[in-house]
Design a protein around this nucleic acid. Structure first.
Lengths: 372, 372
DNA sequence: GCTAGCACTCGTTCCCGCCGAGTGCTAACG
DNA sequence: CGTTAGCACTCGGCGGGAACGAGTGCTAGC
């Protein structure tokens, strides 16, 4: 049903091939890689799986002890040496086992990962949680973040859906104080915004309602630009309201202020690779959306999940992470981004299937709510 | 202008007096404490200040080197011994300096802390930030959390204001889909809620507007109970809407679902006392409002700042923390809670003044927005 | 082509001794 | 009588060294 191969690569080549690799020939530069033998593939798969699970470098002896490979440690060593030369593994120290390189993970994701559909237990659990609540689109975002973090077991990031060209569907004015009103607007995509506006003169609910009634049919279905044009002709209060509507609509598609929800930080704070260092740094990374600002430009518009592993990440701050992202929404009309971030040694299979599933779910929700 | 003494104590006595104290006589149990001499007070003040700043136990020699006390280390040692016997200090190890006890902090907060007004630089900075934004009351909450965390330099917690008995001021219905509508209601206190409601039959904006217009004057100013009574007489759609209004109003004052915003976790993650251990535990503590659930029952309704130090905290999870809290809002009508949480060795002066200032600011905002 | 054996590397852990900061006590001093 | 100087003692932290174990590359034999 779902094609496991349909996972696109973040960046086509490692931007800095000379980074880690020990003294040996790093290969993979000019010459085409010889295809891996079936046994090498099996060993690579085992190493990735084991390292993902334990986080400790895996050695030849341990491998043969824990798994029923048919050969001796020495043979494994030979094959490992080959894999290392080809760039799929690296040894962090002279002794102490080997660890997959970014390229190794990449190969695993492309060729070795088995079925990538989310287990139906999880699917049911997720659908159940989403059925519990009956709220607005933008609260789905929060729920999506928390469910995604829980399902994938790492940190999730979700942006609210953003319409390409928002069109006004409806608005209301509510008096709060004689000179203070609440402006509520709804777009075609069912996004809702409330803004407080300081009213230039004393007013009351009745006159505000009259004003809204009079204007609403005039501006229904218009974009910010069209409303601006309309505003130039209007008189005092009407003109004022139109200006506010225009500004709020423009705010909706402003890239800069996209808010990024995250969840599940506690999932990775305990991991050994982030233990000693910078719990602070991690928090900072996800706060304030500095995170997405870095990744977003690289994100293709394609409907499928994209994977960035280690050095493939555009931003320096993300070099130590693996990132699995997808867009969601209705093509060309309203889109958002969701995904997960974890250590490079994350369970890519589960991450990818979780992200893909959640993206579908959110796309369906957005589609349901946006009126043509 | 502000009375530094007007800080009430969280819990009257330490619930577990035998906890830390070494073998010596723990005193402070039955006999009234002899008042501290002026020199002891000065030394205690120095120790608290120094420990708050550095986080390392402070010894007699270091004290005399870093501060121009007029006496020798030996004298300091004698006084320290007295302070330890009286329960204000404790020595974590045989050597290595002394550390204030909860009681020591308490004495400091009550009798040794100097001026507690927030420096006007900060006051100006805060007012400035609040003037920048023009949003709804509930977004003030988020801003308050972040400003408070920044000003006090530790973790802040802020709950949204909650009306004692919410009364409806206005509501609107907006059609999203033929069978899906958005219900927006505003209370007298200017709290806004949006709920999506699944409509029992196909409808459109026009009929929804008519319905809302007809009903709104009927229910203006009513409480949930009064609306429920009114609903019993209504017919189909009206009755349905009244039911939704009632439910949403009830949700507003439900204690259980009070949402707690926090900010500034990164400020304390770096501290030595939380370094090794449980970044995870810390996150968990503040997520999901489990935190306030524990403290809230203990919180007096008094208008002033309350301080809980270490063991004075009602919840076990907070035994390692100092907590400074205040209510804010309009007495008896709409109230929220805000405060900061940090290690017991926090800068109480700054925390208390920050919390007090922010509580005033938020109270003013709430008062401005709530129509009599 | 696979495997057993072997010498070697290197990170980890534990132990031990040193150092420094701090303490309590006692005796001397003004 | 309060204050101070001196002293023996305690204890945590740090650094070096030994023992250990996991892993490696290489070579020779099956």
């Amino acid at each position: 049903m779902i094609d496991p191969q349909a996972v696109s690569q973040g960046a086509p080549g490692s931007p800095d091939p000379g980074a880690g690799a020990a003294g040996a020939a790093t290969s993979s530069a000019g010459s085409p890689l010889p295809p891996l033998t079936e046994r090498q593939r099996a060993i690579l798969r085992l190493i990735v799986q084991e390292y993902v699970q334990t986080g400790r470098p895996v050695g030849s002896k341990g491998l043969t002890e824990r798994h029923a490979v048919g050969v001796s440690p020495a043979t494994i060593r030979n094959e490992m040496a080959g894999l290392e030369e080809a760039g799929y593994l690296q040894s962090p120290h002279t002794s102490g086992g080997r660890v997959p390189t970014d390229q190794g993970y990449r190969y695993f994701v492309h060729h070795l990962m088995g079925a990538v559909e989310l287990p139906s237990v999880d699917q049911i659990m997720i659908r159940h949680q989403f059925r519990q609540v009956e709220v607005q689109l933008e609260q789905w975002v929060e729920l999506a973040a928390s469910v995604l973090a829980e399902t994938a077991g790492i940190v999730s990031v979700v942006t609210a859906p953003r319409p390409a060209v928002p069109r006004l569907r409806h608005f209301e004015l509510i008096a709060l104080q004689p000179r203070l009103a609440l402006l509520i607007l709804v777009t075609h995509e069912s996004l809702v915004r409330q803004v407080m506006v300081r009213w230039p003169e004393d007013t009351d609910q009745e006159s505000l309602s009259r004003l809204a009634d009079a204007l609403v049919s005039e501006v229904r279905g218009l974009t910010a630009d069209e409303i601006a044009a309309r505003a130039r002709g209007g008189d005092g209060p009407a003109r004022f309201v139109l200006g506010q509507l225009e500004g709020t609509l423009r705010g909706l598609d402003a890239v800069g202020q996209t808010e990024v929800r995250h969840s599940g930080l506690e999932n990775i704070l305990g991991l050994p690779e982030f233990a000693g260092a910078d719990a602070q740094g991690l928090l900072d990374l996800f706060r304030g959306g500095a995170f997405l600002g870095a990744v977003l430009p690289q994100l293709g518009a394609g409907p499928d999940v994209q994977v960035f592993i280690g050095d493939e990440n555009p931003a320096d701050a993300l070099r130590r992470f693996g990132v699995v992202l997808s867009t969601y929404g209705v093509d060309g009309s309203v889109t958002g981004i969701l995904g997960v971030v974890g250590p490079t040694r994350m369970a890519y299979g589960r991450s990818i299937s979780s992200v893909r599933y959640m993206a579908r779910l959110m796309s369906d929700l957005v589609a349901d709510l946006s009126s043509a």
